[in-house]
């Protein structure tokens, strides 16, 4: 399915979705959580990604963080915001690989997804067809700064105010 990178470009998906029983010799395989232990046990030097529901306990995944190149979090509906919190927790708990949002997101959620730690968005064909890349780029830039601290984006308004105060004091 169409894949949008953090810059809002549609790019080729290097991951191959693995079906149980298949050979795992593709260089980048994306597997289900159920298949993960078996795939990890026989893996060669491929990159492994796992696709998870937005209700998965992080404890189930944390032991595999180092072995995982990608975690894909399913958004069953664009209005289901659990994936944002799960992404934030995965980042906090030390996952440094690629985080992918998978589902019918809308362009207006792109900035939120990036701020919560996602690197890319995998969309259903129809949704990508309606929302060309320029919509995602524009929507992501809707706010030049926002208020929340501690999210993965440029300096928040609070931090910019703080910087201005320090500058005023030193200048």
């Amino acid at each position: 399915m169409p894949l949008l990178d953090a810059g809002g470009r549609f790019v080729a998906d290097r991951f191959h979705r693995f079906n149980s029983g298949e050979a795992t010799d593709h260089p980048c395989v994306l597997v289900s959580l159920a298949d993960l232990p078996a795939v990890l046990a026989v893996r060669g030097d491929q990159e492994i990604g796992v696709e998870i529901a937005n209700t998965v306990e992080i404890a189930a995944l944390a032991p595999h963080f180092d072995a995982l190149a990608l975690i894909g979090i399913a958004f069953p509906a664009y209005a289901d915001g659990r994936g944002f919190s799960l992404a934030k927790r995965l980042r906090r708990d030390g996952f440094t690989g690629t985080l992918r949002a998978i589902g019918p997101l809308i362009a207006d959620q792109f900035a939120y997804a990036l701020a919560c730690g996602f690197d890319e968005v995998e969309l259903p064909e129809a949704n990508a067809a309606r929302q060309p890349a320029e919509h995602w780029v524009k929507a992501a830039a809707a706010f030049s700064a926002t208020y929340q601290r501690g999210y993965a984006r440029e300096a928040s308004i609070l931090d910019q105010r703080r910087a201005a105060r320090l500058e005023g004091r030193n200048g």
Binding site: I106, A107, D108, R130, Q131, P132, H135, K138, A139, A142, F143, S144, A145, T146, Y147, I157, Q160, R161
Partner: peptide, 27 residues
């Protein structure tokens, strides 16, 4: 302050854009 002002103006622009995308069928 300048940040709040810009934030609210940007929200208005964002809503205009959302309405346009609705009208065009993008959403």
């Amino acid at each position: 302050d300048e940040f709040d002002e810009r934030f609210v103006r940007e929200r208005v622009a964002q809503f205009r854009d959302q309405v346009n995308r609705r009208l065009s069928g993008a959403i």
